[in-house]
């Protein structure tokens, strides 16, 4: 079952179109990666799906309902969460408060969910009363992902989760992505780190100049020599 689908999405900033007719889909329990060179429109695609940019054309469907052009605070209520690439934590709040903000719209007791997130990221529990501003990039990324999980989303959008992380942390973040996926969350991840991402992805899309140029299973894209040469740096 498809949980997220875009049909012929067109979007951009100011006068310029950045995305042209992008149609992609994410099925239940999948990890799907969006890869491609710098400036291909990968982040723009996620921002448009999540309502941070208003599409110029096309349709976004989330769990069978159209959400095209809805604002982020409406979309987040419909079962999709988003982790931006930068500025993805509240620096002057503590770790625990960051997670609470992720659950802001919940009116039920979310103590269990908090426990679950702390189980996934035990490091966060140890330092839950620390202000986030002082923490490292890897810890911030964990907090950002934890915050996004607080609403029990069906779909999670991750914008370059491994960007600006030390190599040793990159592997850890990818392991966490697999862990989150195993709890039943479908994940769409945009990455510069294409090879590592494809290894954990069920399927992948290659974006270039704002257009979808290739799609296949993660494994097949990795083995495709031509795609590798053109878009994955040889």
């Amino acid at each position: 079952m498809k949980v997220l689908e875009t049909k012929n999405l067109v979007s951009g900033y100011g006068e310029t179109d950045i995305l042209h007719d992008v149609s992609i889909e994410l099925k239940e329990k999948e990890i799907v990666s969006i890869i491609g060179p710098n400036g291909a429109g990968k982040s723009t695609l996620l921002k448009t799906i999540f309502g941070l940019l208003r599409p110029r054309g096309g349709v976004v469907e989330l769990i069978g309902a159209e959400v095209t052009g809805l604002s982020p605070d409406r979309i987040v209520r419909k079962g999709m969460s988003y982790v931006p690439q930068v500025d993805n934590v509240f620096p002057s709040l503590t770790i625990q408060e960051n997670l609470e903000m992720g659950a802001f719209i919940r009116t039920d007791d979310y103590g269990d969910k908090l426990e679950e997130v702390y189980e996934l990221f035990p490091l966060l529990q140890e330092r839950k009363n620390d202000k986030v501003g002082k923490l490292s990039g890897g810890q911030r990324q964990m907090i950002a992902m934890g915050r996004a999980l607080m609403l029990d989303p069906r779909v999670l959008l991750l914008d370059e989760p491994s960007a600006s992380l030390a190599p040793i942390l990159v592997g850890m973040i990818f392991e966490k992505i697999i862990d989150i996926n195993k709890t039943g969350v479908a994940i769409m991840v945009v990455e510069q780190n294409a090879r590592e991402t494809l290894k954990i992805s069920d399927r992948g899309y290659v974006l270039a100049m704002g257009r979808k140029v290739f799609e296949d299973t993660g494994k097949a894209i990795l083995e495709n020599k031509e795609v590798g040469k053109l878009y994955l740096g040889g």
Partner: peptide
């Protein structure tokens, strides 16, 4: 309070507050 924390969060980063579902 929940609203007080949301105020601090919004002062930190309004876009992230909206992305989290906070009614800014």
């Amino acid at each position: 309070s929940k609203m007080g924390k949301a105020m601090r969060a919004t002062a930190d980063n309004m876009e992230l507050a909206r992305v989290s579902g906070i009614d800014t």
